[in-house]
C-alpha cells in the first residue's frame, strides 16, 4: 500500500516542495484548514492583465499527501484563467497525485489545496 501512497515523487515533494512560499503583492490570498485534522494551506495568487495566473505560492502545514498535492496543484494551474480554475474539482487533485487507493479521510487531504484555491478565486471572479 505505502509503495503507492508514499512513493518517491510524493516523498520528494514533501521534502522539496514546489511553489512554496508567499507572494507580496498578490491579487488574492486565501487560507483554509481541514477541520478534521488541522491541516492548513494558504495560497497566494498574482494574476496578469489577462486574468491568468502569473504567479502562485502556497504555504501551510500538513501531511505528505496534502503538501504534495499543494505542490502539484499550484504547478498545474500556472497560466490558467480563473474560469479554468473554477472548473477543476477534487478528482483532478487526486489524479495529479496519481494515488489510486486514497481512503475517504485522505481524499480530504488531497483536495484541500484545490478547495482553498477555488474559494480564493471565487472572491475575485
Amino acid at each position: 500500500m505505502s509503495a503507492d501512497m508514499y512513493r518517491e515523487m510524493i516523498l520528494d515533494l514533501y521534502e522539496n516542495p514546489l511553489n512554496h512560499g508567499e507572494l507580496d503583492p498578490c491579487t488574492f490570498s486565501h487560507e483554509e484548514d481541514n477541520p478534521l485534522c488541522g491541516d492548513v494551506v494558504k495560497i497566494d495568487v498574482l494574476l496578469d492583465d489577462d486574468k491568468k495566473i502569473k504567479e502562485i505560492k502556497w504555504s501551510g502545514d500538513g501531511c505528505a499527501i496534502s503538501m504534495a498535492s499543494a505542490s502539484l496543484m499550484t504547478d498545474h494551474v500556472k497560466g490558467m484563467t480563473i474560469e479554468e480554475v473554477m472548473e477543476l474539482n477534487g478528482q483532478d487533485a487526486v489524479d495529479l497525485l496519481g494515488v489510486s487507493n486514497l481512503s475517504m479521510g485522505r481524499v480530504k487531504c488531497a483536495t484541500l489545496s484545490i478547495k482553498v484555491l477555488k474559494a480564493g478565486a471565487s472572491a475575485v471572479q
Partner: peptide, 21 residues
C-alpha cells in the same frame, strides 16, 4: 513525519491510533 502519515502507515500494520487534533 505528520500525524496523518504516521496513522496511515501504522494502519498498514493493523495498528489503530488517532491522528489529528
Amino acid at each position: 513525519l505528520h500525524p496523518h502519515d504516521i496513522a496511515q502507515l501504522l494502519d498498514e500494520d493493523g495498528i489503530a491510533v488517532r491522528a489529528g487534533h
